Simulated scan of single mutants.
Amino acid sequence: MRHISRGTNKFCGSCCSDFALEAARSTAEDALLGQTVIRATPDAYATFLARLDAPPQPNEHLHKIMQSTLPWKVK
């Protein structure tokens, strides 16, 4: 890993600590940008969790999907 970092440092013209800081900053930024914040009241959040935990209600579309042949098993 060090030889890759040193090669990148020479190419970019930065020292090892600058390179490491920039890599850490970039990774942290990517992680934060990948987040979605949803604001909800405690009651709305509890309702949301209850719906996630509840089993799906039977319906025709769900039944059709569950009865269909799996795409990777089609001959």
Rank of each mutant, 00 (worst) to 15 (best):
L32H: 07
V74F: 07
V74N: 09
T27M: 04
C12T: 13
R25F: 01
D18F: 09
P55C: 07
A24R: 03
T8I: 07
S14D: 04
K64N: 01
A24W: 01
C12G: 10
P56E: 14
S26W: 00
Y45H: 13
Q57V: 14
E22V: 12
A46E: 01
A40I: 13
D43H: 07
I4Y: 11
I4E: 10
M1P: 05
G7Q: 11
R51K: 06
P55R: 07
P56V: 00
I65Y: 07
E29T: 13
V37T: 06
M1V: 05
A24N: 10
L62C: 02
L52A: 05
A44T: 06
S68W: 00
H3Y: 10
K10I: 06
G13Y: 12
D18I: 02
T47M: 01
T8G: 09
C16V: 09
K75R: 14
H61S: 12
Q57W: 09
F19W: 12
P58M: 05
P71A: 07
H3S: 15
R6T: 11
C15R: 10
E60D: 09
T69E: 14
H3G: 05
K64I: 08
R39I: 07
R25A: 11
H3I: 08
A46P: 02
G13H: 11
A20V: 12
S5K: 15
L49A: 01
P56C: 00
L52R: 05
S17R: 15
D18K: 06
L21V: 11
H3A: 08
T8H: 13
Q35V: 11
H63M: 03
A44I: 02
S14N: 04
K73W: 03
E22C: 12
E22R: 09
W72V: 14
T36F: 08
H3F: 01
L70A: 14
P56A: 07
D30K: 02
P71I: 11
H63V: 13
E29N: 10
I4N: 10
A20G: 00
R6P: 00
D18Y: 04
A24V: 02
H61W: 04
L62I: 14
C15P: 00
A31M: 08
